[in-house]
């Protein structure tokens, strides 16, 4: 129990620190990297709660896809972040107001646990008695009861992909593409031509 507590404070502290660095870092690339650190620590917190599926999803989706996308955007777009940050103090009162409201809401939620402790028991979903992990439990229901919706969602994503390609992909005739078979199949007979050039004359 002590070990779990220690890990909780490690992950929680690092997550808060990383989140703080995200908004204060001067270099946007550093900010995105701190965001990734925050995601990893949040995933660690999920593991501590026994929600290993959510933890993996967080790492795969947020770190693997979303954060990398952010990184691409930050690196590809030429945004002057110094200029963006100039009005920072101006927005501070408004930001503080939003933060205060959030804080009050969090206190209310936590307060309700203090007032009636039995609610806290509902907060964590109980694991199945026969040792089924939540990944397995999700899989069992997703691929049996909801298999129709799962497949339908797959078809919708396929249409979305076709649509994106149909509406945006332009074939440029001048573009040089790789043709591995043709490239590997070249031999000296077809690829090189040897000519004897007389001194003092061009070809």
């Amino acid at each position: 129990m002590i070990l779990a507590g220690a890990f909780f404070y490690l992950f929680a502290g690092l997550a808060v620190a990383a989140a703080f660095m995200v908004i204060t870092a001067r270099n946007p690339v550093h900010a995105v990297l701190f965001l990734i650190l925050a995601f990893f620590n949040a995933a660690g917190l999920f593991v501590l709660m026994g929600a290993e599926f959510l933890a993996m999803i967080l790492v795969i989706v947020y770190v693997g896809a979303v954060a990398v996308l952010f990184l691409f955007v930050v690196m590809m777009l030429d945004i002057d972040f110094v200029e963006l940050k100039q009005g920072f103090l101006q927005y501070l009162p408004f930001g503080a107001l939003v933060g205060a409201i959030l804080l009050i809401e969090l206190i209310l939620v936590l307060g309700s646990w203090v007032i009636s402790p039995d609610i806290a028991q509902h907060a964590g979903a109980p694991l199945a008695a026969d040792g089924v992990t939540n990944t397995q439990a999700l899989g069992q229901i997703l691929y049996t009861k909801y298999v129709y919706f799962f497949e339908a969602a797959g078809m919708i994503l396929l249409v979305a992909m076709i649509g994106a390609i149909v509406l945006t992909l332009h074939h440029k005739p001048a573009a040089k593409r790789q043709n591995i078979a043709a490239q590997v199949g070249r031999d000296p007979k077809t690829a090189i031509e040897i000519r004897h050039v007389e001194p003092g004359q061009g070809i």
């Binding site: 078809m155 919708i156 249409v159 649509g163 149909v166």
Partner: peptide
């Protein structure tokens, strides 16, 4: 599914 295909 049908709407998305129709938009495209």
């Amino acid at each position: 599914l049908q709407s998305l295909a129709l938009y495209v």
